[in-house]
Design a protein around this nucleic acid. Structure first.
Ligand code: ZN
Ligand code: ZN
Ligand code: ZN
Ligand code: ZN
Lengths: 158, 158
DNA sequence: GATCGTATGATATAACATATCAACCCCATC
DNA sequence: GATGGGGTTGATATGTTATATCATACGATC
């Protein structure tokens, strides 16, 4: 769950560890990680890229876990509200959280070539958003920090 | 065009100055600021909030400048590509640029109560996005920095 | 066993965005 | 002044993302 960058890694452990963490956290907080919710988390964890709600819905549909948009959106709302997944605004899509352990101010790096998305840990208080907001007297409730570009693997090719 | 924050100001000059700048810049760069494009810019300048493409389209339709989605999207593409407007990813909506003069790395402060959106100037090189990207060897082509929350006027009320 | 809260099922629709092809206009070139 | 290319517009259709609404199921609580 700490896959920091665009590097190769044992991906099976990503899924297993992600689900295990979620199960534990839900138990601690009395959250219901129902079948559909857990399955959506697994689907998101299965790839290091953002997936659209309808792409997720196709999986659910194929597995008999639901066939209509609200099924996917409800699961995604649960996952994002509770920090198990994030919405990537730039893509109108979703990705599993890769820093489940600590509260965070994520920065997402989105490769336009290979579509991989990496969640990096940022220091909220040091960012430009926070600085600007403080100066304006603005109370930040949610900050979106997303960069689109080329990952180390794709940059040379392009 | 330097309305920095959520403060009161002479709004007519916002529109006039914004259009004037755009006209001049287009002349300098040989860009065609056609009727529809200029009108969309004026519509965006008319309010300090983000407007959806279909909301803009309604205006155009009422004025006989077009009635189908591509009309609005084409004008918006021209305006955003040339820096006269910005897309707010968080809202799937658009806003006129308020720093036409200088190249910039804008931060948007979005008030969820009054819907006002302020474009603030940030220092790209100092932000957390840039720091994180550098560490990961990621080449940033576009950075999205948007904060949602409460503006100084709305924060006390809430 | 009635009530309540949470989760699902099901249907419809809203909201946002793009693909495609034809027509047109301006202007430069032949 | 005809030809052709580039950019713009018109028109139609479609694709994609997201939510509203009402009904049903089910375990927990009283
Ligand atoms: Zn996260
Ligand atoms: Zn890549
Ligand atoms: Zn701007
Ligand atoms: Zn406000």
């Amino acid at each position: 769950m700490t896959s920091q960058a665009f590097e190769a890694h044992d991906h099976r452990s990503c899924i297993a560890a992600g689900v295990a963490s979620a199960v534990q956290i839900c138990a601690e907080r009395n959250l219901q990680l129902t079948a559909a919710r857990q399955r959506v988390l697994e689907i998101l964890l299965s790839e290091h890229r953002a997936m659209g709600a309808y792409e997720i819905l196709e999986h659910l549909r194929a597995e008999g876990l639901g066939s209509q948009p609200p099924v996917a959106y409800r699961a995604l709302e649960f996952l994002t509200k509770n920090g198990f997944a994030h919405r990537i605004e730039r893509l109108n899509a979703f990705i599993a959280c890769s820093h489940l352990d600590n509260a965070h101010a994520p920065v997402f790096l989105i490769c336009r070539a290979c579509e991989r998305v990496v969640e990096a840990e940022a220091n909220a208080a040091q960012g430009e958003i926070d600085r600007v907001a403080r100066r304006a007297g603005f109370v930040v409730e949610r900050a979106v920090r997303e960069a689109e570009g080329l990952c180390p693997a794709c940059a040379p090719t392009a």
